[in-house]
């Protein structure tokens, strides 16, 4: 009558993660109202989702709409929850998983400050040229470069600048858009 009571190694709130984590880029169309960023960031922290990068800006001024681009790392099951939970927020119009929906364009901008003299300066400029980074400020012992491209390209550039006298970096976070004629 009483089912056999055996010790189990499994626990019930913490089922095994369904699938390995993947990096995905989501683009979210929202009403540009006060607190929207806090709402989205709050959702991620409250539900334990990761944010690798988050960018916001108003894109359709007359309609008061903003686009938010979020890069997250999660299992396929969690990714689905992230999308559903975002769509549940009242000011959210649409959520697209650009990574899942096929090819998309992703760009990021970084400003990179490098200080150095002599040989290093020449080498710095040579690499910057190869990466098509622009000099936007220069002094006798420093440069500030502007570089755009995929995050991986920016990371590579920054890595090369470290031994040459990297001082600091600021990055905008990712902007992403789908290819082809279709809009969101």
């Amino acid at each position: 009558m009483n089912a056999q009571l055996r010790a189990s190694g499994s626990v019930y709130f913490v089922p095994p993660e369904a699938g390995a984590p993947e990096r995905h880029t989501l683009t979210v169309l929202v009403d540009n109202e006060p607190g929207i960023l806090a709402r989205i960031a709050g959702l991620f922290s409250a539900r334990g989702f990761n944010i690798d990068s988050l960018t916001v800006s108003e894109t359709e001024h007359e309609k008061g709409l903003s686009r938010i681009t979020i890069v997250t790392v999660a299992s396929p099951k969690t990714l689905m929850q992230i999308k559903m939970q975002l769509e549940r927020l009242v000011p959210v119009h649409k959520v697209h998983d650009l990574t899942a929906e096929g090819s998309s364009l992703e760009r990021e901008l970084a400003l990179v400050k490098v200080a150095g003299t002599g040989e290093n300066r020449v080498e710095t400029l040579r690499i910057a040229d190869a990466f098509r980074a622009q000099v936007v400020d220069a002094s006798t012992e420093s440069f500030v470069f502007e570089i755009t491209g995929k995050s991986s390209k920016i990371e590579q550039f920054i890595a090369l600048m470290v031994p040459l006298g990297l001082v600091e970096v600021v990055r905008t976070g990712l902007a992403a858009i789908s290819r082809g004629a279709e809009g969101m």
Binding site: A3, Q4, L5, R6, S8, S10, V11, Y12
Partner: peptide, 14 residues
Amino acid sequence: PSGKAHNEMILADS
């Protein structure tokens, strides 16, 4: 009990 399945219920006279 916590961590158990449905068919591992405890009843009053256990």
